[in-house]
Write a protein that binds this DNA or RNA. Structure first.
Lengths: 198, 198
DNA sequence: ATAAATAATGAACATTATGTTGTTTATTCA
DNA sequence: TGAATAAACAACATAATGTTCATTATTTAT
């Protein structure tokens, strides 16, 4: 029953988190040393090890906290995705974007910073971008086909995340409602119908 | 004019690359030490520094080589994306997938290995997946709207990469032609028309 | 308000990886 | 075969990690 948390622990943990997020944005995760964190948080390096095993441990703890918030946001959407509908997709995305808006610095630290092999993905995307960017307007067409369910899911999720990251990276150039509306229309009707000519 | 490359250099560089790719797949980029690479390549640790500044330098050199190959593949597609068309998109994607097929181990090392904050993206995607996965079948609809060009580009690229990574991760469960065909249809006509009822 | 509990400090230490500098040995090139 | 140079070998300075232990300070609970 006794659930009091020692104030010192609370204070220390808060300082560490704050220092950590700041440092990630300043120099990137990899470059951070425990001493950096200790200095910034104004604690002894030893004290860090009293609360976290090491740097990855701290990282994962922070991530899990953030992600449980996301989970909450999604759960609190009074919506069940079965049957699937575009307006539901739109609602969920908007909720997530608004949640991100409330925690901008966290998400910038987690999703925008360059890190390891991840830049490879970026570089590769840039190359593909170059090619796709040549594209102007599409031609029309219409039909019904078999699509791998897994492929479709992957398609949805990655475009979802892609748009989110784009939105964060560009300091939210559009309102959350607009982004989620455009996104869901793209998903629903496709590039030809939505963005192209008729 | 004299462009002979010393065989010793060639041999050493090859061993280093080979060792590096193997080690990435075995223990992940972060965990690798220069000594690991030297041991595996059967060279002196010092020799490593004769050819690369440090671990990131080696990584980026490897990445750049691979990426220039991708660039080649894309350029060699005798296709200009302007005007945009779905069959062009399909052709380009198929070319890239086939290129990946020819260099599977490289791409697995580069795109699949877990690394740093990147797992955050994965975790977050999983949460969104959970929600989206509830979805069954869609309803119909049709119209024409304004879509942010940047958002559209980001949408395309990230879904493109997402499908590619999915394909690699799952050991190419479908032929390259099938994946690119399904993908481009999704892009063109949207989830409702392609994957849905109607 | 005070005593007991415990968090934080400070210093020391072993360990491991990095990156550098010479010197020596072996291989390649011409 | 001799000159050039890559690779090996050894030694070193530096920096970060993670652990230990005694001491100090703060918080909690009585």
């Amino acid at each position: 029953m006794n659930k009091k948390v020692d104030l010192r622990i609370l204070r220390t943990k808060q300082s560490i988190r704050k220092a950590f997020y700041e440092l990630i944005q300043e120099k990137g995760y990899e470059a951070i040393t425990i001493q950096d964190i200790a200095d910034r948080a104004v604690i002894n390096r030893n004290t860090f090890y009293l609360h976290y095993e090491n740097k990855p441990d701290l990282l994962h703890t922070c991530m899990d906290e953030l992600l449980s918030e996301v989970k909450n946001v999604i759960v609190q959407c009074p919506i069940n995705m079965n049957p699937f509908s575009i307006s539901k997709l739109e609602t969920v995305m908007q909720a997530i974007l608004e949640h991100i808006s409330r925690n901008t610095s966290f998400y910038q630290a987690m999703l925008i910073q360059e890190n390891r092999i991840h830049p490879f993905r970026e570089k590769m995307e840039n190359i593909i971008k170059e090619k796709l960017n040549e594209g102007g307007n599409p031609a029309a067409g219409k039909s019904s086909f078999v699509i791998s369910k897994e492929l479709l899911l992957e398609y949805l999720v990655s475009s979802f995340m892609g748009v989110i990251i784009w939105w964060i990276k560009n300091d939210q150039p559009l309102p959350a409602s607009e982004v989620s509306s455009q996104f869901s229309r793209l998903v629903a009707y496709g590039r030809l119908n939505v963005a192209g000519i008729e």
